[in-house]
Design a protein around this nucleic acid. Structure first.
Lengths: 192, 192
DNA sequence: ACACTACCTTACTAGTAGGTAAGTAGTCCT
DNA sequence: AGGACTACTTACCTACTAGTAAGGTAGTGT
């Protein structure tokens, strides 16, 4: 179906735009021009902008979390799993003109200009990441790879915060390598 | 002068709005309605939006950095200085409806829809924070309060990343206490 | 009394925002 | 062949965007 293709194209372009310029700087016109259809054609697939962003976040969340689950299920060490998780977002950061952030981060920053249901979905995406990070951290704690005081849950929130903040800083400063340096240092701290 | 008052009011309202909804969701109309003058009256003080945001960032940067310098110059311990630095941003986060982020963070997220000069100013704000954080970290390292491997500069970038990411997460999840928990944990990690 | 300036106002512009109603070309099913 | 469905199109809407030109007015200095 050509429909599916167009729908996917819309989501792809919208995601790219939001990761670059943010939700409020992305318009239906930008999308329609990028894929070569008319403004109303985009509205046919996604009647409202909130609906489009909701669909986008769901797709993104499913993609990221399933990749993350694959990493957790792999037979590798906790340290390797953590690094592979970090690399997931590094790929986004280093793609194209090195100006793309995490979709969740962008939606989080602009969440007050979104509707309440979307804010909750963004929060759930964060929590889902943190839960999975906690699993990796506990695994590393038990294997002796990670040594840190206190509960793994709070540490997971800290790690996710550093990841999101690291992407922000790295992108603004135009230095894609900084992200890696930050998280490499974090891994070393976790190893004790 | 009434001029100064209006100019200050414009900056205050604009800052509040940007910290809440972001740069692109804030309009001259929002500002004019909030302070009770007409749209053109705002343009009298700040002809262009980029100019307004530039002035805003400069004021914000000066404010934050001078407070930070005061903290560094105080006779307190490095650990206390670090906590007071974190508390600076916590005040913003917990003010009003607990929906305000760091201005630097918001401008960083939406930096691609700003002009290039502004992006550089945001990056410089980040670097200025990191430099001052590095001073505190070195001080703590020398006094024995902080124990960490590697250079203080990279650690300063990590700390600032965690701070920015922590604000983002805390705000999205609507839990203002999370920020404190994250940075408290970070302090404990730095103490070794 | 008069000019000058600072600080606004009214009234406007061109462009863009998200969104809609009605029409159309192609495809599928009976 | 006829009808229904999908995936668009053209043409339009109202509201809002940043920004401007010209005018008014209050206060100040001479």
């Amino acid at each position: 179906m050509n429909t599916v293709d167009t729908r996917t194209k819309i989501l792809d372009v919208a995601q790219d735009l939001i990761q670059r310029v943010g939700v409020n700087a992305m318009s239906y016109r930008d999308i329609s021009e990028a894929i070569g259809i008319r403004n109303a054609g985009v509205h046919y697939h996604f009647p409202t902008k909130d609906g489009l962003i909701t669909a986008l976040l769901e797709r993104y969340s499913d993609d990221v979390l399933s990749l993350l689950d694959q990493i957790i299920a792999s037979p590798e060490s906790a340290e390797t799993k953590l690094r592979r998780y970090f690399a997931l977002f590094e790929t986004t950061l280093l793609s194209g003109n090195q100006d793309k952030a995490c979709l969740g981060g962008m939606l989080g920053a602009e969440n007050e200009s979104l509707d309440a249901a979307l804010t909750e979905k963004v929060a759930n995406f964060y929590r889902a990441n943190e839960r999975r990070l906690a699993v990796i951290l506990v695994e590393g704690q038990q294997s002796g790879a990670f040594k840190f005081a206190g509960d793994a849950e709070t540490m997971a929130v800290l790690v996710f915060s550093t990841l999101q903040g690291g992407m922000l800083l790295s992108r603004v400063k135009g230095d894609g390598t900084e992200y890696r340096a930050i998280l490499e240092r974090l891994v070393r701290m976790l190893k004790g």
